[in-house]
Design a protein around this nucleic acid. Structure first.
Length: 581
DNA sequence: TCTATATCACCC
DNA sequence: AAACGGGTGATATAGA
């Protein structure tokens, strides 16, 4: 079954469709060609009654596509049953590149060029055809043109498959293809939002921003009429108040949050500006793509990062910008949401993959960070989160930092400790988790010598002498975490659970209010099984946060800002609207 | 006026 | 050269 020979039919498929921001796709046409026989099917789909599929995908048939989530999204829209086996050449192209960027990008044209192939259609015509697909009425000539273009993509896909065929790891490629089916379902589901509040925030954004600024900036005058912080005005104000502000090499003032915090210690008078900058920093204009049904939909951009994480646009996804926006996530009446995430996912992955028993014990304890302190003998065995909060914070920062390859000085600075103390913390980690470090050292060494690093299911990165050693050490943690969430997404969607979005180490799911507890529980079991699929006999714990209508998603980190915004909103809904005066 | 780069803020 | 991983994106400034 795991060679092409095992498949009865291999269909290369491409759709043209129309998809306004935030909406589900409307298929226009499809062309499919069977790989061996050359049999070609051309279907115009723009009709009131959508036709049944011109082919049926049996258990021994394969669908091949480029970014298959789009094609499978059309399948779902047409109520066609999804194929069991999917090969996505976009995903496999990314895998073959192993972290490198192709000269002509990751589109179909870019992939063809990478293999020295050509496409019958150039970028200009591609753009024109994509525009044509947005039309609502089509002449016969336009239909023919769009179908011809669609077929050209299938021909291109055929050439690409021939070029890539020998270099595929088929069983794993099919697993990734299966994930693309999950992506299609997730992109279709979307995230329910409170569109009333979102509309108010977006419509009145300039006033909101102005009001947030007006109060505080009155005594400083460093913001301009558009609400932008003016560096020159800031330097002038500082000079006038005898404050020697630190400059960057370029001569511009150093305006990051840390600098403000540092300077505020000596000059507390700047505190309000620091606060205001922090507030505005997390309050940028957004362009969440929301469908007419009030759901936030966006491309997940699966496998978009070198570690194979999804990489959706930060402005289109509600999970992209600052966390206070998540208060806009709200189930509709009768519905409920559950946010499920892995506890200390990367710590657990490191423990399991390195086989470090002490690290595994720490994970199993339920509080890995405090356990780390106990194992190091730095806190008593009966210490708790409550009895030793400061210490726990240090071991937590240390353990998390180590996963990113933090150095002793950076760790010390972050914890406001002496360099010696930073060194001691890292030494503690090295000593307690010796086996983890041996494993991690070997990974760096191997990759530096040029052999690729590979995850449990075959995602790879190729490094070389010039690589960042911290990226290499982090790769197995982050990339296997991505594998885990993909397995979970497959399991959840195939079990019929509505998945609204994946969020790196978490998923947002949806169900009827009276079913959410049971569904969330079942989903947690699937997430735990997904962790076993990646880690062998080691299981990661998950946490569930349930949101029932009319509750909204809450997030402590964003609570203050959300509070501030909601206090300003009622003025815009007052019955006497001055615009009408 | 447009584009490229640097810097910064946010997410997991 | 710096030394905290993977990202997206807004904004300011410099330069063509």
């Amino acid at each position: 079954m795991f060679s092409f020979d095992g498949f009865k039919k291999i269909w290369l498929v491409d759709f043209e469709f129309n998809q306004p921001e935030g909406c589900r796709p409307t298929p226009r046409c499809m062309v499919a060609r069977e790989w061996r026989s050359g049999q070609t099917v051309r279907v115009w789909l723009e009709a009131a009654v959508m036709p049944p599929p011109p082919f049926l995908f049996g258990p021994k048939d394969l669908l091949v596509a480029y970014l298959a989530s789009a094609e499978l999204g059309c399948f779902l829209e047409l109520d066609w049953e999804l194929p069991q086996h999917v090969l996505d050449l976009y995903v496999e192209f990314r895998r073959l590149l192993a972290g490198q960027s192709p000269a002509a990008g990751f589109g179909l044209l870019g992939a063809l060029m990478h293999f020295g192939l050509s496409h019958g259609v150039d970028q200009t015509e591609k753009t024109a055809m994509r525009e044509l697909a947005q039309a609502s009425v089509f002449s016969n000539a336009q239909k023919a043109a769009l179908l011809a273009y669609c077929e050209a993509d299938v021909v291109a896909l055929e050439k690409l498959l021939a070029a890539m065929q020998a270099r595929l790891d088929l069983p794993r490629a099919l697993l990734r293809g299966r994930y693309m089916a999950a992506v299609a379902r997730i992109e279709r589901t979307g995230i329910p939002l409170d569109t009333t509040a979102l509309g108010l925030i977006q419509r009145h954004w300039p006033e909101l921003k102005h009001q947030l600024i007006a109060e505080i900036d009155a005594g400083f005058g460093v913001f301009d009429a558009n609400g932008a912080f003016v560096a020159a005005r800031w330097l002038r104000w500082c000079a006038a108040h005898q404050i020697p502000w630190p400059l960057l090499n370029s001569g511009r003032p150093q305006l990051d949050d840390d600098t403000f915090a540092e300077m505020a210690k000596s000059f507390p008078v700047i505190l309000p500006i620091k606060e205001l900058r922090a507030t505005l920093g997390q309050a940028r204009e957004t362009k969440f793509s929301v469908g007419l049904d009030g759901r936030n939909r966006f491309l997940l951009s699966p496998f978009g990062s070198r570690t194979s994480r999804n990489q959706p646009s930060n402005t289109r996804s509600i999970f992209g910008p600052a966390t206070w926006y998540r208060y806009l996530i709200q189930p509709t009446p009768g519905r409920a949401l559950a946010y499920l995430d892995y506890e200390q996912q990367e710590f657990g992955i490191g423990a399991a993959l390195s086989g470090d028993d002490r690290m595994k014990d720490a994970y199993a304890s339920g509080d890995p960070y405090l356990s780390f302190g106990k194992q190091a003998g730095a806190v008593p065995p009966d210490a708790t989160k409550m009895s030793h909060p400061t210490e726990r914070d240090r071991y937590k920062t240390c353990a998390l930092g180590v996963q990113y390859g933090i150095g002793q000085d950076a760790l010390a600075r972050r914890l406001n400790l002496s360099p010696a103390h930073g060194r001691e913390l890292i030494a503690m980690h090295r000593k307690v988790y010796q086996k983890y470090w041996t494993w991690s050292d070997r990974i760096e060494a191997r990759a530096m010598l040029g052999s690729p690093l590979v995850t449990a299911f075959g995602w790879r990165i190729r490094a070389g002498a010039g690589a960042n050693p911290r990226s290499l050490r982090n790769f197995p943690l982050q990339a296997n975490g991505a594998e885990m969430l993909r397995i979970a997404a497959i399991a959840l969607t195939e079990a019929g659970i509505a998945v609204c979005a994946p969020v790196h180490d978490a998923v947002l799911i949806e169900a009827a209010t009276d079913q959410i507890d049971a569904v969330a529980k079942a989903a947690q079991a699937l997430l735990e099984r997904a962790s076993q699929a990646v880690l062998g006999d080691f299981t990661l714990r998950t946490e569930a946060k349930i949101i029932r209508w009319p509750e909204r998603f809450s997030e402590p980190r964003g609570a203050a800002m959300w509070e501030r915004v909601t206090q300003l909103l009622p003025q815009f809904t007052a019955p006497l609207n001055r615009d009408l005066g």
